[in-house]
Computed example of a mutant assay.
Amino acid sequence: MTARMFPVADRHRDRVYVITGGAKGIGRACAERFAAEGAQVMIADIDPAGADLAETLGGVFHRTDMADPDQVRDLAAGTVERFGRIDIWHNNAFSAVFKPIHEQTLDEFDRITGIGIRGYWMGAKVAVEQMRRQGGRGVIVNTASVQSFVGERGFSAYQATKGAVLALTRSLALDHAPDIRSVAIAPGLIATDAIGDIPEDVIEEVLAGIPAGRAARPEEVAALAAFIASEEADYMSGTAVILDGAYLAIG
């Protein structure tokens, strides 16, 4: 039986939520969840499908390449111009290739880390700058991964970004406590289109090691993000919340 996700009505009413990589997968589910809870949603992505989603949700789409600092600044400025403020900034965009390191190219590494390290840092920077201008309150959510904690063959560049995400999350929390919180979400295998880029034998290997017996649904990540960003989680900062079906519990 598929579990149902129950949005909490009005929990994020009139709060402004920015989601990067928001056109599909985890990002799409998060945009839908926050909109259902009353947030005004800014969807950032290089995928034009984000425009259709924004129209459906009554939000705004901003085409943004998170590897380009100028575009990240434009995203923040565009959000403030449209909504007047930024309350929640969710760094979620990513790039990855499945290759052993000796087959990866420097261009691939630069693209992956440009989004997953520099893009996250830049996103947090512009969000914090705006949050301070508007009085200092706000939440930074960073999508990390179980690969922040354990290795997986073929993902060296991607894993480097996810390890960095944890360090960034902790530093942000310390720099801006008690007013601006920073929390990472560390999902395991997620049932999204991105799975199609991973060889089937690797997926089967990972699934075999998940005690829950399945991949997570994007909606489950979105439900967690909505809780983390809410006042109910006001004492949560500088940490990562793992959502992995007990994958890491095996040790």
Rank of each mutant, 00 (worst) to 15 (best):
R214F: 01
V141K: 02
E55H: 15
I185S: 01
V41I: 02
A127I: 01
R63A: 12
I228W: 10
A233G: 07
A208F: 05
G154I: 08
A96S: 15
E129P: 15
A194V: 10
G22A: 07
S148I: 11
I190M: 04
A157Q: 05
V165C: 00
T239I: 05
A77V: 12
M42G: 12
E37M: 08
A223R: 06
H62M: 13
D70C: 09
R181A: 14
T64S: 11
D244P: 07
S171H: 14
L172Q: 03
E37T: 05
D244M: 05
A223C: 07
A127D: 00
A31W: 08
R13E: 07
T169V: 03
A226R: 09
R11A: 08
T20P: 00
A223L: 08
A186I: 09
A127Y: 00
D179T: 13
F155E: 08
P48V: 02
M131K: 09
R85F: 15
F155Y: 10
A77G: 11
H90F: 04
G84V: 14
G213C: 08
V165F: 00
G135E: 10
E232F: 02
T113V: 11
A93I: 00
A36L: 12
G123N: 03
M5D: 15
E219V: 07
V150S: 04
F61C: 02
R153A: 15
D10S: 05
N142E: 08
I228A: 06
A23T: 01
F109D: 12
A233F: 15
T64K: 03
S156L: 10
G196L: 06
W121G: 10
F227C: 09
G59C: 02
G138K: 07
R181P: 06
K24H: 15
V202A: 14
R118Q: 14
L53F: 04
F155H: 12
E32L: 08
D107S: 15
D193V: 11
A229V: 04
Y247A: 14
R181Q: 05
A93N: 00
E108A: 02
K99P: 13
T192K: 01
A240I: 02
L174A: 15
E55C: 12
D47Y: 01
W89D: 12
I19D: 03
Y120D: 09
E108N: 01
G27T: 00
L166W: 01
